[in-house]
Amino acid sequence: MRSALRSLWPPLLVLAAVVAGWQLYVTVAGVDPTTLPSPARVVTQGWANRRDLWDQTLPTLEETLLGFALSFAAAWLIAVVLDFSAAARRGLYPLLVASQTIPVVAVAPLLIIWFGFGLLPKMLVVTLTTFFPLAANLAAGFAATDREAMRLLRSLGAGRWRAFRLVRVPSAMPYFFAGLRVSITYAVIGAVFAEYAGAEAGLGIYMQAQKSAFRTDLVFAAVAVTAGLSIALFGATHLLQRLVLPWQRVSGEEQR
């Protein structure tokens, strides 16, 4: 906990300096708030519209979590298949890599056309943007298992599934969490982006509406909420890691 605090204050300090500079600039230069609102204005207006913001946050959060859950399940399924079958590795992995070159900008509107304005297309965009780091890291983690450990399990009479469960899954966990941290930071952005492409509610559509109404301050407020969500989810992965991998703390193997 102490170390968490110690690693938190430098970025907070930088952030405070940037916000202070921004406030100073806007006040001194007298910038029009529709062009660039001051941080103070963003905060007060955001607070005044908190009910609205909250109502728009809930659908975005729902899309993010459901899309991420789907991504999680798909990543495990694919990574396990890749680990068990050399044929799948040869046939599937290149396609997975190639799938990452498809611009989501192009796919998101198509998903809306196919699946409408509901939840599903947003979930799918979140899944598409977060799936790869999860699956790739997990597969790499399985593959990095100590060969000697696998031989030990075999000499003990363990079959393939049991050896997988007893050795490969736990030894892949640090890799999995590395992937989880990368992909969770994409998840909220994915949902907001999907809403931009067409939605009935959510932070993305809210930003678009406020931009059209020249309420730049509320756009910024929505951006701040988005960032807050991402950071909270990122923090949650750290907590989860501490819970799931208690041995890392004891062994001094926790990253950073």
């Binding site: 000697e148 030990l152 000499s155 003990l156 009479g157 049991r162 736990p170 030894s171 041995w247 193997e253």
Partner: peptide, 29 residues
């Protein structure tokens, strides 16, 4: 199941407690 092999590397798993490391062979069976 006639031979128990202790390899050159101890191969204790860092994610298992000592007790759970010693049960590994039994669980593997």
């Amino acid at each position: 199941g006639k031979v128990a092999y202790m390899p050159q590397k101890d191969l204790l798993f860092p994610w298992r407690t000592v007790l759970d490391n010693t049960t590994l062979g039994l669980e593997a069976q």
